[in-house]
C-alpha cells in the first residue's frame, strides 16, 4: 500500500514542473495518499494473463500520405507567444544539458 511522503510529493512536483508551495506539499501528501490507496484496489484483480488495453477501439495501420498540407504562417505561429523575436519564440535562458 502506498504511503506518500512530503518528499515524494516534492519529487513528483519536480518531475511535473510544478513549483508547489510548502502548504501544498502537506495538503497534497495527504490527498494523494488517500487517492492512491483507493486506486491501488486495481491490484486485487487477478489479471496475470490478461493483455492490457491501450486503445479502446482495435484499429491498426492508420497512415497519412506523404503530402504537404498548408500549415500556419510565421505570424499565426507566433501570435499566441508570450514573447517573440526575429521570427522565433523568445524564452528565458535554458539550463541546457551542455555545460
Amino acid at each position: 500500500m502506498p504511503n506518500i511522503s512530503r518528499d515524494e510529493v516534492a519529487h513528483l512536483a519536480r518531475l511535473a514542473r510544478l513549483a508547489v508551495t510548502e502548504d501544498e506539499l502537506d495538503t497534497f501528501a495527504g490527498q494523494l495518499d488517500v487517492i492512491l490507496q483507493s486506486v491501488a484496489r486495481v491490484g486485487e484483480v487477478a489479471a496475470e494473463d490478461i493483455p492490457p488495453t491501450s486503445h479502446a477501439v482495435p484499429l491498426t495501420n492508420v497512415f497519412r500520405e506523404d503530402l504537404v498540407r498548408p500549415g500556419l504562417t510565421q505570424q499565426q505561429a507566433l501570435a499566441g507567444a508570450p514573447a517573440a523575436e526575429d521570427g522565433r519564440f523568445r524564452v528565458p535562458r535554458i539550463l541546457g544539458e551542455e555545460a
Binding site: 506518500i4 514542473r17 510544478l18 497534497f28
Partner: peptide, 27 residues
Amino acid sequence: SAEQVMALTREAGFGAEVKRRIMIGTY
C-alpha cells in the same frame, strides 16, 4: 531560467484538482 518559469507558470496557472491529477499520473 526557462525551467523555473515553466514550474512557476504551471503552479500559478493550474488549479488544485489538475495538479493532483498530474501528480497521480506522474506517480
